[in-house]
Computed example of a mutant assay.
Amino acid sequence: MRDLLNSIHPVRAISPAAAVADNTPIVSQIIDTAGYESLTFLILIGALADADAAFAVSLTHGDAANLSDGVAVPAANILGGLANANFTFSDDDKVRKVGYLGSKRYVRLTITPANNTGNAFVSALALLGAGRFRPTSNPPA
């Protein structure tokens, strides 16, 4: 079937916001994977003003709703690899993706800038898939 709409559930991870102009980590909402078998983060990169900035992507997971038990996701539980999700100043207006394969209920994405003194516009979407109950709600709840 060509129907993707009824089997995915998009969740805001990092809202579009004012540009980040320093090295403060950009941290997503904690994503609850209950009821879904897959999770992919889509990182939306806007304008990146600094000519030498680099952005490292990491994932944290745990079973506590506030991620007080959060630890770095092992490489074996990451689809696509973190290296492919990382980006630099030359990646204006591109998209990166990274998937989660782990068994923990809660997951969070962090994007950590380095050498960033210019404006960086970054947002992210968490795309939950393979829901146990279909069709998924539209609009997403």
Rank of each mutant, 00 (worst) to 15 (best):
M1K: 09
L4H: 08
N6T: 15
S7R: 15
I8E: 06
P10H: 10
P10F: 13
V11H: 01
I14C: 04
S15Y: 09
S15Q: 13
P16Q: 12
A17H: 04
A17N: 09
D22S: 12
T24R: 04
T24L: 07
T24N: 11
I26H: 11
I26E: 11
I26P: 12
V27C: 01
V27D: 11
Q29R: 14
I30M: 08
I30S: 10
I31T: 10
I31P: 08
D32W: 09
T33G: 05
Y36M: 07
E37P: 00
S38M: 03
L39F: 04
T40Q: 10
T40H: 02
L42K: 14
L42V: 15
L42R: 13
I43H: 06
I43W: 05
L44T: 10
L44Y: 06
G46L: 00
G46A: 04
L48F: 07
L48V: 11
D52A: 12
A54T: 15
F55D: 08
V57G: 02
V57N: 01
L59F: 05
D63K: 06
A64S: 14
A64M: 12
A64E: 14
A65M: 08
A65Y: 05
L67D: 09
L67P: 08
S68E: 10
V71M: 09
P74F: 02
A75V: 14
N77E: 15
I78H: 05
L79N: 13
G81P: 10
L82G: 07
L82W: 00
A83S: 15
A83R: 04
N84I: 05
N84T: 13
A85R: 03
A85V: 09
N86F: 06
N86E: 05
F87Q: 06
F89D: 14
F89Q: 12
F89Y: 15
D91W: 02
D92W: 11
D92P: 05
D93N: 15
D93R: 14
K94C: 04
R96L: 11
K97M: 12
K97A: 13
K97E: 11
G99T: 09
Y100C: 06
L101G: 10
L101V: 02
G102A: 12
S103D: 14
S103A: 14
K104D: 14
R105G: 08
R105E: 09
Y106K: 08
L109T: 03
I111Y: 03
I111W: 00
T112F: 02
T112M: 02
A114V: 14
A114I: 12
A114F: 02
T117H: 05
T117E: 07
G118H: 01
G118N: 01
G118C: 03
N119I: 00
A120R: 03
V122G: 05
V122L: 03
L125V: 13
A126Q: 01
L128V: 02
G129H: 01
R132K: 13
P135K: 02
P135C: 04
T136M: 01
T136P: 01
S137P: 11
S137F: 05
P140D: 02
